[in-house]
Design a protein around this nucleic acid. Structure first.
Lengths: 181, 181
DNA sequence: TATTGTTATACTCTATAACTATA
DNA sequence: TATAGTTATAGAGTATAACAATA
């Protein structure tokens, strides 16, 4: 096969892949389309709480990534900005722990936010081992835009479920999380 | 520091790590304990559908891993066994697709189930490219035990939420997944 | 040409060990 | 000795490209 044809083929595959695996790279598996799953008998999985919640959660994740692509924010970054904004001056480890992020893994996440000028670490005077974390003005204003994007996602969910059911889903998820913790 | 003391310290750390990060290695982050998150103002995250669902889903995941450790089954393996049992003789790619697992990644998963004598691949006569997948007797009987473990988890959820709320959570998650697909 | 199964590979997220500087 | 932040590293899970066999 000659050069031109091969390259064309590669480009075509990339495009198809982009269409099919539309969720893109993240922590979870790609969002499962209902059309694919509906062709099969799920054999009980459809009444398994963990399975159906995972499926839904990954669909939300995929939707989130599309909405936040423009802001270049991943879910963990958005959550981090929210938590810093609500608890300015807290330790970096404390912020990470509240999000369930292990200390070593939180370093790079914060490095990136700092590199982008969104967050700031300052050595604490009281305990010079710890770093007090705050948002910069740029961080504040990006968070404003992120909150708008998040509100839009919540609105989409409201349109799918209705407001009462949406609140119910949040309440049930929270109760279950507490019960299992 | 001498040898003995260092080794003792290492062992101690391992034990602590096992206690704290009790969820073990998986696809998601470790389960977030309510006690840690409750120390902070979540800044709106607590009414964000995606965030609260992820938190709950990861708690279920952690509980699942503990229950299934004895059977040596991870969620994806359990789901695969369920789907094969309900759709015996299907293509390996079709089974994988119904679970949202990409074809290349499903190969190793099936390899492992086959290695353990739980599933079997057979070349199809109709289309000799494709592999029809079925469960072995050992696979069937492990699946029986796995279903019992799964029923126990569902019972735990029932105890936390009540049966009506549990069914509601499943229905809402499914509706949301379909709506976002 | 297209599809099934496969291999190889890269990237992200998560987990553990161990270091440093402070306490 | 213990803790906060860090580095290095290993392991899952997921994604893409490419190939052989078959259609």
């Amino acid at each position: 096969m000659e050069r031109g044809a091969l390259e064309a083929k590669v480009v075509e595959r990339k495009q198809r892949a982009r269409r099919v695996g539309a969720t893109g790279p993240q922590g979870g598996a790609r969002a499962l389309a209902a059309e694919e799953a509906d062709l099969f008998d799920l054999g009980g999985l459809e009444t398994t709480t963990g399975y159906v919640m995972r499926r839904a959660q990954m669909a939300i994740f995929g939707d989130f990534l599309a909405r936040f692509a423009e802001l270049d924010l991943k879910p963990a970054q958005f959550a981090t900005l929210q938590l810093i904004a609500a608890n300015p001056g807290q330790n970096q480890s404390a912020i990470g722990a509240a999000l369930g992020i292990l200390r070593p893994n939180f370093v790079a996440l914060l490095d990136e936010l700092e590199r982008r000028g969104l967050a700031r670490r300052e050595k604490s005077d009281a305990d010079r081992r710890s770093h007090a974390v705050t948002l910069t003005d740029a961080g504040q204003s990006l968070l404003q835009r992120a909150r708008a994007a998040q509100a839009a996602q919540e609105q989409r969910i409201r349109e799918i479920l209705g407001e009462e059911a949406r609140e119910s889903l949040i309440a049930l998820s929270t109760r279950l999380w507490r019960g299992l913790s």
